[in-house]
Design a protein around this nucleic acid. Structure first.
Lengths: 246, 246
DNA sequence: CGGGAGCTTGACATTAATCAAGATCGGTGG
DNA sequence: CCACCGATCTTGATTAATGTCAAGCTCCCG
């Protein structure tokens, strides 16, 4: 079933029984460990536009998204910023700077109403020390993120905005799309034009025009944040590059 | 010859006494552990242009660069590729796909004559399991790499090629530059124009013109792979963006 | 010497950014 | 309920940055 989080699961208010835990790095913890982690856990509700953390703040532990979507942004001092990644319900958040023992080097901004648990750093470090599999899970997780970051670097120079947009839509499909019986796809984008632009490394105007162009070519139709994709293959074609035959 | 790495240290042919080890993630190993790792260690010499590993190959362990420089490249199937990072003597190599338990997702190409040790995966996994600090060191290392990758994503859209080139040169300064008594800098780039272009996400022609422009503005002089920077401040200024006063 | 790879330059094409209005949407207070 | 407001989205005209294509050049290596 392709509907990962249309309705937000009722998240239990403690770690040992948290329905998200099996899917996270915390899955390797036993009940006792989860319980002790839970004791110092705190949870906050973050409204759209608000920040879970911001660049420069001290990183004192790990976050876990219980509901909602969070955008990770990097910005320089000149008003430029890039949306580096989305973090969804059921994922841990802000582990990078925690492991680097540095202050936050990115902003985490809620895109929707979001609930976030905060896990005490000292306890996490303790678990990292005595539970090798815990570290290993994070090594895997960070590998994925690094892999995606590198893909994104390559794509930014190798593909035009149009193809990058298509790639983004396809990536969002799994979480935010649903197909009808005829295979036609509806995708509710979790982000604004501005966010899309920052994720693609382009300007808002360029994103809008790109969407128009795709509409003109019958690849999709767009209504605000809702996209209709009548034929997935056409969208997939957009990702491909023109390559002269040998 | 432009002597890329001034003098290559005489690297001992075994892990426990390897002069590089203290600076790597392997520094947390005790003598015994290093010795056992050494038993299955192999070492190869890789000539410029040759690959330590290539995209798609199975990843069976870790590499460690004993001498030389290795470029990590990602490429798509259309002849595009990006140079995502350089790995220098004294650094481990290829850990990302090892932790992800996947085949290599990048190429590692020697830029100079390079010597590389290969460490058996099974032994590494064993150490990861019983030596928490070993994993932690890799978590730190990967954090840095991820941080740099994200910086690079931002920079690619936030700064023009000229500023990106200046940033690259400044990053290479520490390893490949030397200053004379008057603070004038000479930097021997370890890479070709093509490599520079791929690191900047630009075309070779654009890189050449950018260097010309910097010469015209007196920021540096260039002779093949050798750069002269008469005034470091001017180069630092190139990294800055124009920002209107408040 | 000769040949090829890497480097350089020029002319030109193209993508995407910039600047400048509008249009639309969503919330808020009258 | 409606009018207004700011934020977001859209569109058009223009420009700037970079890519593309096509030569020549240079240097190293056989």
């Amino acid at each position: 079933m392709p509907s990962p989080s249309p309705r937000i699961p009722r998240v239990q208010n403690n770690c040992p029984t948290c329905p998200w835990r099996p899917g996270t790095e915390l899955s390797v913890l036993d009940r006792e460990e989860a319980t002790s982690l839970d004791r110092k856990r705190t949870r906050v509700v973050v409204m759209p536009g608000q920040y879970v953390f911001q660049q420069g703040e001290a990183c004192l532990g790990l976050h876990a998204v219980a509901a909602g979507v969070v955008a990770i942004r990097r910005s320089d001092g000149h008003g430029n910023s890039a949306l580096v990644r989305l973090v969804h319900a059921g994922q841990t958040l802000g582990y990078r700077d925690f492991f680097a023992r540095s202050a936050y080097t990115a902003d985490a901004q809620a895109l929707t109403r979001t609930e976030v648990c905060f896990l005490d750093g000292e306890q996490i470090r303790c678990l990292l020390d005595c539970k090798p599999q815990f570290s290993l899970r994070f090594l895997e997780r960070m590998s994925e993120d690094l892999e995606q970051a590198e893909t994104s670097i390559l794509q930014q120079t190798a593909s035009p905005v149009r193809a990058r947009f298509a790639t983004l839509v396809l990536a969002l499909r799994e979480r935010y799309g649903k197909a009808d019986s005829r295979g036609r796809l509806t995708i509710d984008l979790p982000m604004s034009r501005r966010d899309i632009a920052q994720a693609l490394g382009a300007r808002v105007e360029t994103v809008v025009r790109t969407i128009r162009a795709l509409e003109a070519d019958g690849v999709l139709r767009s209504d605000g944040r809702r996209l209709f994709v009548p034929d997935l293959d056409k969208l997939l074609d957009e990702v491909e590059q023109v390559e002269p035959a040998v």
